[in-house]
Computed example of a mutant assay.
Amino acid sequence: MKATVKQIRLDLQRFSGAGRAWVAALIFMSVPVIGILLNTVMALTGNDGDDARGVLTTMVVGMEVGMIFGLALSLFAEFSNTAIRLNGLLPITRDHQVFGRYAAVSLLSLVYSCGCSIFFFCVTDSYLQGQDHWRDTVLFTLGMFLLGSLLFAVAAPLFYWMEPAKAMIVFVALLGLMTVIAFIGCWLPFDWGAFWNSIMRFLTFDLWRPVLLGLALILAVDMVSIVISRKVYAGKEI
């Protein structure tokens, strides 16, 4: 346990680049804080309509993708450097390093999600077609945490397998492929609106349902990703 905690601290320090783990949390919190400040400016200038707030919310959500990109690059950029890798291996085992890295990213994603929940609560009453402000805020927070966790779960095995630049190219290509598939799906003769509305009604009927299902999905995907990362990392030469 102590070794895993040490690895979490090492990765937070690597990401912040400042030798202080808490700086990483401040970096992740900066995006929702900036979003709140921009919303305040829009409100003071009378430009805080639904469209403007929707664009601002989309920007804040989209920034998490960029933050995960930056996080993955910062943690794996020097992975080929033997000294840096030994920094996380002695006296930390490879398993500790993998578990600690996933835990560090989950921690930062949670910090970002909590910051976004404050942003969401301040900016809008509802973007999930609900009437309960608190409930929609919880769902938005869960969605942000789910997004960050899933992105890193897909990216991490690639970065353990390839050099950072190649892994990033493959990761971006996968996101692009998913976008293309989504566009193709929109042209199919299928009522996607009714389909997604039925799923949302099922998920949001009770608050506990999306929370439990979301956390279960994150846990399952992370476990699969960790198993793959451990197997790939075990084959790496030090």
Rank of each mutant, 00 (worst) to 15 (best):
K2R: 15
A3R: 11
A3W: 05
T4V: 15
K6T: 14
K6P: 00
I8C: 10
D11A: 01
D11R: 01
L12W: 07
R14E: 12
F15V: 08
A18K: 15
G19S: 10
S30Y: 06
V33K: 05
I34S: 09
I36N: 03
A43E: 09
G46C: 06
G46P: 11
G49V: 06
G49D: 12
G49M: 07
D51L: 10
R53P: 00
M59I: 14
V61Y: 06
V61L: 07
E64L: 15
G66A: 11
G70L: 09
F79V: 11
S80P: 02
N81V: 12
T82K: 14
D95V: 14
F99C: 04
A103V: 08
L110A: 14
V111A: 11
C114N: 04
F120C: 08
C122Y: 11
S126R: 02
Q129A: 13
W134I: 12
R135A: 13
D136A: 11
F140G: 01
L146W: 13
G148D: 06
G148R: 09
S149N: 13
S149M: 05
L151T: 04
A153W: 00
F159G: 05
Y160N: 02
W161C: 10
M162E: 12
A165V: 14
K166D: 10
K166T: 14
A167W: 00
F171A: 05
A173R: 05
L175F: 08
L177V: 12
I181R: 09
A182I: 01
W187G: 03
P189K: 11
G193L: 10
I199Y: 04
T204H: 14
F205Q: 13
F205C: 06
L207E: 00
P210C: 09
V211L: 07
L212Y: 03
A216C: 12
I218S: 00
V224P: 01
S225M: 00
I228H: 03
S229K: 03
G235S: 13
K236G: 00
K236L: 13
I238V: 15
